[in-house]
Design a protein around this nucleic acid. Structure first.
Lengths: 123, 123
DNA sequence: CGACATGATATGCTATACTATATAATTTAT
DNA sequence: ATAAATTATATAGTATAGCATATCATGTCG
């Protein structure tokens, strides 16, 4: 019964973390030019575990998730329901380039670190 | 700097959820006049487990926590670090009565439901 | 092509969240 | 003070997150 194979064409319903959490984590990781191994190392998790979290194979403990998002310069907050839309638009506003005629002088620069080239002989 | 964590003689360093999460959950529960048993029932957890979560004895899985806060009319969001202060003051603003000369017409009414009297012969 | 980096999968083991239940300890009400 | 409700603790079993490691598949680049 719980097995409904309604695997849409798209999101591939899994039972792990909410999709937006998974996507944002992965996106933030890639934006830094980090591999799963590198991210895992920073927080003390093995690469396969990062893979399992990002793919929704497992749902991590709260503290594990918190560690993860924090090395990605994010945080997890408890938000009253009525404030959720406001907070989300705040986030979106920062995310999007702030489209006006004039570009703002400073890029919306969160976690916008140079992907930092990595050589193959580095540990 | 941050909010000086007054780890006095008391708090007895636990490994559970962050303290503010635990306190806010408990506060929201009490505000509704719910006991641990009642809260647990709404989300399918036994009372001792709620106790363990609130007291910091354990750190729950993310999905468990999410279920919990949602029946308390709250949500958990991923916030970019730079936005955290803004979001927090948004929350505080709503929390606090908005102290001005004129009171606002409508109370800052989140989760501000009548504690709903309960009689002892009720199931 | 071959060397290498990355991510996905698999296995065995350990730690612990979670379930279910009972009961003690506290708090609140009458 | 007694009863009732609420919360904390205890025990035992199950499910699964997390750890460590190896391997496979894929992609990139020289």
């Amino acid at each position: 019964m719980t097995h409904d194979t309604l695997r849409r064409i798209k999101p591939l319903r899994l039972k792990g973390l909410p999709e937006d959490f998974r996507l944002k984590i992965k996106e933030a990781r890639l934006k830094r030019g980090w591999g799963q191994r590198e991210l895992g190392a920073k927080v003390g998790l093995p690469q396969p575990h990062i893979s399992a979290i990002e793919s929704g194979e497992i749902v991590p403990r709260f503290d594990t998730l918190l560690d993860l998002v924090r090395v990605l310069d994010q945080d997890i907050l408890l938000i009253p329901r009525t404030l959720v839309p406001a907070v989300q638009s705040l986030i979106r506003a920062q995310r999007e380039p702030a489209e006006s005629e004039e570009q703002s002088l400073y890029a919306a620069d969160d976690e916008e670190n140079a992907p930092k080239e990595k050589r193959h002989d580095e540990v």
